[in-house]
């Protein structure tokens, strides 16, 4: 495991947060926290999570797009689906309802680049794909109630043409013409994702990682990694997220035990890392960096798949000494 802390830089930032904001420090990204949005400022090696800003609505669910330009949220109470346009400095936002989106979505997933989103409604078993997020949102409704229950994993392509979801060992691909395909997988799916700007997907199962090319056409499966060891040894390890770098050159898988494994898609080589944390998923931050979801206690973790480094990004300290 390789961990890097630039504590000097971090503490320096902690002490000068106000001034930092005033001079327009770079925004690394946004962090959803309940119904609030926090701003990550700086760079992965020297970043800080500042205080939350007010979007003007009470939200029950919120996810930020990997391109950090937009968020999709569910309004508390009404369940209305909302699109939140993020300002580069987090000082202002524009929040509008998504016309045609059903109320009460229970899950929000963004496409790899953040140009499309999928809203899962567990009460109805319907999936809604939203495109045109930053201009005029368009909604496509998919009836997936035949699959029964909530999907384990869910992903949508950047152009919104395809959505994929897993129920146990079944992975369904929902196409633009209302077609439904069953993708060729051979085990219980733990995580899946699209590659950027393509209809190629990655699927993680216990002891196996595979890609499926062109799910709208030939849907050609290819196993890129198989666990050579004793499967029982990793019985308690579960992949909780998988994501591709923005140039599709790397694919990172993260497990609930904190282990990360990144494949170089050109050479086939893989590298491991350990965040010493218990992540709940991967959220793209642009380039080859990911935020490890569910690690917000005290400091969140950012993983750079290009360098295989894990960075601690501490939360800002409030004036009373507590975390904001």
């Amino acid at each position: 495991m390789k961990r890097s802390y630039i504590l000097t830089s971090v503490f320096s930032l902690l002490g000068s947060l106000n001034a930092f904001a005033q001079v327009g420090a770079p925004v690394m990204g946004y962090v959803p926290e309940g119904g609030l949005i926090r701003i990550m400022q700086g760079i992965p090696a020297a970043g800080i999570v500042s205080n939350a800003f007010d979007v003007g609505r009470e939200l029950s669910l919120l996810e930020v797009a990997p391109n950090q330009s937009v968020a999709v949220a569910i309004a508390a109470g009404s369940g209305e689906a909302l699109v939140v346009i993020l300002d580069a400095h987090g000082s202002t936002v524009r929040i509008t309802a998504i016309a045609g989106a059903a109320a009460g979505a229970s899950r929000i997933v963004f496409s790899p680049s953040g140009t499309a989103a999928a809203l899962w409604n567990g009460a109805t078993g319907h999936l809604q794909v939203v495109t045109g997020l930053t201009s005029t949102p368009s909604v496509r409704d998919i009836d997936a109630s035949f699959a029964g229950g909530d999907p384990g994993s869910l992903a949508v392509s950047d152009d919104g043409s395809w959505a994929i979801a897993s129920w146990g060992q079944q992975v369904y691909a929902f196409g633009p013409d209302s077609s439904v395909k069953v993708l060729p997988v051979s085990g219980a799916v733990q995580a899946l994702c699209f590659f950027h700007s393509s209809a190629n997907v990655a699927v993680v199962m216990a002891g196996q990682v595979m890609t499926i090319s062109d799910i709208g056409g030939g849907a050609v499966p290819k196993v890129i990694w198989t666990d050579p060891g004793d499967a029982a040894a990793s019985a308690n390890q579960l992949a909780v997220g998988v994501g591709a770098s923005f140039d599709n050159s790397r694919l990172t898988v993260v497990a609930n035990t904190g282990l990360l494994f990144t494949f170089d898609m050109a050479t086939g080589e893989g590298r491991g890392a350990d965040c010493n944390c218990a992540p709940a998923g991967l959220a793209g931050l642009g380039g080859a960096t990911f935020r490890l979801m569910g690690t917000n206690a005290g400091a969140l973790r950012v993983f750079d798949a290009a360098t295989n480094e894990i960075w601690m990004v501490p939360l800002a300290v409030a004036a009373d000494g507590g975390q904001q």
Partner: peptide, 10 residues
């Protein structure tokens, strides 16, 4: 049925 290939990443 189709054919599943096994190999390095594309």
């Amino acid at each position: 049925p189709g054919v599943v290939t096994v190999g390095g990443p594309q």
